Amino acid sequence: MSLFSHLGAYFLMLKGMFSKPENFKMYWKEFMHQCVEIGIGALPIVVIISLFLGAVSTVQTAYQLVSPLIPMTTVAQIVRDSMILELSTTVLSIVLAGVVGSKIASELGNMRISEQIDALEIMGINPKSYLVLPKILAGLLVIPGLIVISAVLGIWGGKLAGDLTGILAPDLYDIGLRQNLKIYNIQFALYKAYTYAFLICSIPAYYGFHVKGGSLEIGRASTSAVVVSCIMILLADYTLAALFL
């Protein structure tokens, strides 16, 4: 399929999601299930990555600031802004594209080749709205939350690393955190978080929903979904930065 064929099929899938629910309770149950699967399932890796990103940022920033003219509180400012603007948004979203995206693609792909999606259509249930929409809505709810948790943990991990290595005292780190804080940076990070959440859930859902063949194709669809999601996240990162910064 060409690029335009993929784009057309992708937008048709998104259009097909919006229909009246056949049974609102079942849709709500599926939505809550996906919130747990995406949010709780990805939480351990988010915690681990965020702590180490913050710690490494502190150590490396302190190593590069060799001039005595630069106050050490600048380390905390750089770690704070790095975590909020890039590390906890873009880097973590690329990780989530692998964790969450491959799961969504393989789950829908398995349902497609085992003819469960065809069975839903025969029963008069819209599979796009029942299977895809709850995943995207759940992602839009929990992934920005994971990114906020990541930013907080990353900043705290930087403070802990600075204290343990003796690079920066906790009170100096706290002073640096409060200096030159731009609330717009947090706002911009949330813009990115919701954009990435939509891409992380919708692109793998498209690849999984349109799998043809057997189990080998599920693996290929999962790989394609992760690769395309990562590329689109990086493209969205540049586009949003050019538009809003």
Rank of each mutant, 00 (worst) to 15 (best):
Y10L: 11
V36Y: 14
I143N: 04
A221F: 04
V66E: 13
S5N: 10
Q77S: 11
S106Y: 10
S215F: 11
A242Q: 13
M123D: 12
I231L: 13
A62V: 05
I231H: 00
V142A: 08
K159W: 09
S102T: 15
W156H: 07
I167C: 08
I45G: 02
F24W: 14
L69C: 14
L177N: 03
L12W: 07
D163A: 12
D171F: 06
Q60C: 11
L181G: 05
R112Q: 13
R112N: 08
K15G: 04
F244E: 14
T58N: 00
Q64V: 14
L243M: 12
G41T: 07
L240H: 07
Y196F: 15
A189N: 02
M17A: 05
G139L: 01
I94V: 13
F31R: 15
F188W: 06
L240R: 10
I48Q: 12
I231K: 05
Y27F: 11
M123R: 10
I78L: 12
E217H: 09
M232Q: 14
L137G: 01
F31P: 06
S114E: 08
W28G: 00
Q77N: 13
P134N: 10
V142Q: 00
V47L: 14
G145K: 08
T90D: 13
K159C: 11
Y206F: 15
Y173G: 04
V79K: 00
L153Y: 06
D118V: 14
M17H: 02
V148N: 02
I186Y: 05
A138C: 11
C35W: 03
L181S: 07
M17Q: 00
I113K: 00
G54L: 01
L181Q: 07
Y238W: 13
V211H: 04
M13C: 09
L234P: 05
G214P: 12
S224Q: 14
I143S: 02
E121K: 13
L235V: 15
A119G: 13
D118Y: 13
G176V: 01
Q34G: 03
I45R: 09
V142N: 03
V46Y: 01
L43I: 07
K135S: 09
Q34P: 04
V132I: 10
P144E: 08
C201N: 06
W156N: 03
S229V: 08
I183V: 10
F209D: 00
A119P: 12
G176T: 01
I218P: 03
K29T: 15
I231F: 05
S229N: 09
P134L: 05
I175F: 06
L69F: 14
Y206D: 11
V59Q: 08
P134K: 02
L133C: 02
A236K: 04
T61I: 11
I38L: 11
L199F: 12
Q77Y: 14
M72I: 12
A236V: 09
A138Y: 05
G54I: 01
P170F: 15
Y191C: 04
V211R: 03
V148C: 01
H33F: 15
N185V: 04
S67V: 11
L87M: 15
A151N: 08
L53A: 10
V142K: 03
V227C: 08
P21T: 14
